[in-house]
Nucleic acid binder design. Structure first.
Lengths: 208, 208
DNA sequence: TACGGTATTGGCCGATCGCCCAATACACAA
DNA sequence: TTGTGTATTGGGCGATCGGCCAATACCGTA
């Protein structure tokens, strides 16, 4: 197999192992077995364990940003863009992905590399939301006074939403979704329910 | 040493180890060494590794609830109570404590016991905030339409606040604190800045 | 064809893990 | 005092870890 594809296969296996077992319990031998190679070969591509974990984390982080940008580029409507951003956090969406991030945050304490990547990704994610809000402001769809603060609120509530879904607290998912949408609508100067309904084909949701 | 005190000492050492190294990397031998006992004795008190981790987690969870109730009981003013709840999340507050919770959430995926305890604690914490809000409503201090939703928002933003402080994103702590207070004030029908300042008619500026 | 570098294999090493267990120290009741 | 149960010690076992290395397979090039 070509070295590039082999390396990618190993990284893919590493991400899967990390999602299932966590960073600390991910062993190079298990990753190698899942990738269908021997542990010796894995050591050939990733000389030490930390480089494997760091590369896997970097891969997921880059994919996350790419997917977000792709979702934003496919739809130019700020309202739809905001929905694209907040929706994947819910149940059935990116559960495995969020398990990965929770592991990453916990592991960031022990690894300066992971901490730095976490930081970069957090900033990038925040700026992404800020961009959507500011474009919505410019287009006259939003009336948001503090884009940076509101963006942080959206990210924070989305994170907390995903977290509550994961640990399965007594709070019903629909209730979390409701408060997330309600607060976002108010922060953006939208009419109540503007985010809840996926803009019925035409321009029917312009009743404010 | 009395068995009860010995067991408590072991648990205390376990909590410290978990906070530093995480659940997955916490070994019974290290816990025993920190507690000043042999690994054989630790096995005498906690027959298997999971029981040690579960007991340590349970200890912290109970202490968390107790401390919150104590803080709430020491001050009957709903506004001060709310400040007591949201303040420890900030920098300089419960950094080590939050590291523990992050580890716990990540580990909950792999342990039904930890997941159940996480769930119970999350519900208890939410109900605690709901109680403060409802008492504030009854006292005429708050005008909150959706206590449950608002309580979840407070908890979610506090969690996200602590998380951002931990990973050290580009968002300044004061900015996070500002949006947390601003949204809470609006949800509770308070005047702007009501939460930021200790007490308007206050004689004691015991806050930092 | 011969050659050199890379991909790949599988065994090995020392360290460490959770767990087990025989032996010993100790405290308190009979 | 004797005896009994618990507290405590420390060594050992099998498994597994990350990392190292000699040997082999493969493949493009001179």
């Amino acid at each position: 197999m070509q070295p590039e594809r082999r390396r990618a296969a190993i990284l893919e296996a590493a991400v899967a192992e990390i999602s299932e077992r966590g960073f600390a319990r991910t062993t190079s031998r298990h990753v190698a077995a899942r990738a269908g190679v021997t542990h010796g070969l894995l050591h050939h591509y990733f000389p030490d364990h930390d480089s494997l974990l760091a590369a896997a984390f970097e891969k997921v982080a880059l994919e996350e940003i790419d997917e977000a940008n792709e979702a934003l580029a496919s739809d130019r409507d700020p309202l739809a863009q905001l929905r694209e951003i907040t929706e994947p956090y819910g149940p059935g969406g990116g559960e495995e992905a969020y398990r990965f991030w929770l592991e990453a945050w916990a592991e960031a304490y022990h690894s300066p590399t992971l901490q730095e990547t976490s930081r970069r990704l957090s900033v990038a994610w925040h700026e992404l939301v800020v961009g959507v809000i500011e474009r919505g402001n410019a287009a006259g769809v939003f009336r948001c006074e503090h884009p940076s603060e509101t963006a942080w609120m959206v990210v924070a509530l989305s994170d907390a939403y995903a977290l509550q879904c994961q640990i399965g607290s007594g709070l019903a998912p629909y209730e979390m979704n409701h408060v997330l949408w309600r607060l976002t609508e108010r922060e953006l100067g939208l009419a109540a329910g503007a985010l809840a309904r996926p803009t019925p084909a035409g321009a029917a949701a312009r009743n404010d």
